[in-house]
Amino acid sequence: MSDATVTLSPTENVINAPATEVDGHDPSMLISMRDIWKTYQMGTEKVHALHGVSFDIPRGEYIAIIGPSGSGKSTLMNLIGCLDTPTQGQYWLNGKNVSEMDDDELARIRNQEVGFVFQTFNLLARATALHNVELPLIYGGVSASQRHEMAKQALTAVDLTDRMSHKPNELSGGQRQRVAIARALVNHPSILLADEPTGALDSHTSAEIMDLFERLHSEGNTIIVVTHEHDIAERAHRVISIRDGMIEKDERIR
């Protein structure tokens, strides 16, 4: 696919960019971030949450983004998850430039490309596990019968076959997080984006969830875990460390 695109725009190729760059990004990569800035106006002062961050993530990678609070990792996560757009810079997700999309286009990308897993699970309290998992499919316009089928499959994949009609308050923390993971995966997104996924769990359950991530990775899913805990980050194959809105370290550990 990349070969075809390259031949379509040979002039870009000549300019002193790496051989695979097209339109300023690498089309073989699932995620390409180029010189991303995020600036907030706090009263009269401008605060730069991100100072020109650039990195690529290939399909199928298991990556951790680590940094202390205030480092800009939450801002980065919001950008990766298409909840927000950068003040400056380009972000390509699965071949689409999402850095200039409007709210509704972003919503569509979130629905199709991103599966969120949150620290506090963020399940709808009044809905059953099955209905919670169906939610992204409802917004994706999937028919009711197909939705049921897909949601059941996703819950089966996280070993919750016998908890489908339970509401969140009838489930343990680990079970709730697995419902959330099923919800994140039900639409077969390009990335699974987890924000402190074990932050509200005990160490035993945390280990279970991290094992689940490992399994999902081995099944071909691209996983990005945002965390401040080193032992969680160390389960990943690559760790990007953020400090003061810049990439401090980007290392492959496995």
Binding site: G81, L83, D103, D104, A107, R108, R110, N111, Q112, F116, N122, L123, L124, L135, P136, Y139, G140, R183
Partner: peptide, 16 residues
């Protein structure tokens, strides 16, 4: 508000 945030994160558009 939280519910709205969850729905939006899962792909609900403004019109939804």
């Amino acid at each position: 508000t939280k519910e709205i945030g969850i729905r939006k994160s899962l792909g609900a558009r403004q019109m939804d």
